[in-house]
Amino acid sequence: MPMNRPATTALAAALCLLTAACGGSFDDDKTSTKTTEAAASKTGYPVTLDNCGQSETFKTEPSRVVVMNGASVAEVSTLLALGLQDKIVANQQTYGMSEVSGRAAAIKALPTGDIKLNEAYDIPREAMLGLRPDLVLSVTTYGFDQKNGFATREQLKQVGANSYVSPQGCDDDPSKMTVADSYQLLRDMGKIFNVSDRAEKLIAASEKNIAAVSEKVKGEKPPKVMVIFSNMSMGSNDFSSVLAKGIVNDILAKAGGANAFENAAKTTFADLSKEKVAATDVDALVVISYNDPNPAAYAKKLLKEFPQWPAAKNNTYVTLSDSMYLGPSNDLAVQKIAKRLHPEAF
């Protein structure tokens, strides 16, 4: 990942990500209300979401969707999981790999809109408006900030486009994110595209998979796990891409583990010195790849650098990508981590 400020801001925001509450849309006139309710019962529309304090009403199913980068893959993966790839006219999200078979290739095959991206590696305002979207998805409000050169939500509304900010993206603070936010994103997209049945089936399957894994590791002592991005620096130190807070902690807990650096920072990332890392007992290592073709090599390098870690002595590491983020495949991360932390339980 490029290490300039906009990309760093986008990634921190993307690991991330706003709980949207839903309500009905009704006309004040009783006759009109009955007509609207009857139409909605047949078509599923209109649908109104309260998103970041902004009301978004969808009169029909979106058919020209633009997915902004934001160093996220949650939004495009959610659309693909729901079978909505044909609705996307421009996608800027990619992590280069995925725990879901075929997903990385499916994302790569999506149209990009042939856009010249700005310094934040995302779609500038004029290019966005030229795409004639009817829905724009952004992982955080950063993607709709005018000072960043993006089209605002109001400007999009003026040209007939709805907009949506993903769970925990309203305040650009992913530190409180949990797996439940991934389910919220699925539910919201299900409502917007009138495929709630598909969304609920995916959620139910994920919940069932996670519950089965958690039951197997119940009562086991949670190993201390370091979660770090592969070959990437987010700050002044070599260990500034260590995750302290956010959805990764919920995933670890469900897998029977605990974040070794959870208390090292109040924010999503902990900017750690080598001395701090060396002095911490790390029982297992989770390396997250962002377009790194060989995260295992990075994991082995770290284990060699810190031979005093229990993780190094036992060669205990896991490499993951999109399943560790907001998105539809968190259950895969839970399963893979649990099997490495507690192999005797499987």
Rank of each mutant, 00 (worst) to 15 (best):
A296G: 01
A296W: 09
A297H: 11
A297I: 07
Y298T: 02
A299F: 05
K300I: 05
K300P: 05
K300T: 00
K300L: 04
K301C: 01
K301V: 04
L302P: 09
L302F: 07
L303R: 04
L303A: 00
L303S: 04
E305D: 15
E305M: 14
E305V: 07
E305C: 06
F306Q: 08
F306E: 02
P307E: 05
Q308R: 06
W309N: 10
W309Q: 14
W309F: 12
P310Y: 02
P310C: 04
P310G: 07
P310T: 11
A311V: 06
A311Q: 10
A311P: 04
A312V: 01
K313G: 06
K313V: 03
N314F: 05
N314L: 14
N314R: 15
N314Q: 15
N315P: 14
N315S: 15
N315D: 15
N315M: 15
T316W: 03
T316K: 15
Y317D: 00
Y317Q: 11
Y317A: 04
V318N: 07
V318F: 03
V318Q: 02
T319H: 13
T319M: 11
T319Y: 14
L320Y: 06
S321K: 10
S321R: 04
D322W: 04
D322R: 13
D322T: 12
S323T: 02
S323D: 05
M324C: 09
M324R: 12
Y325R: 13
Y325D: 09
L326V: 09
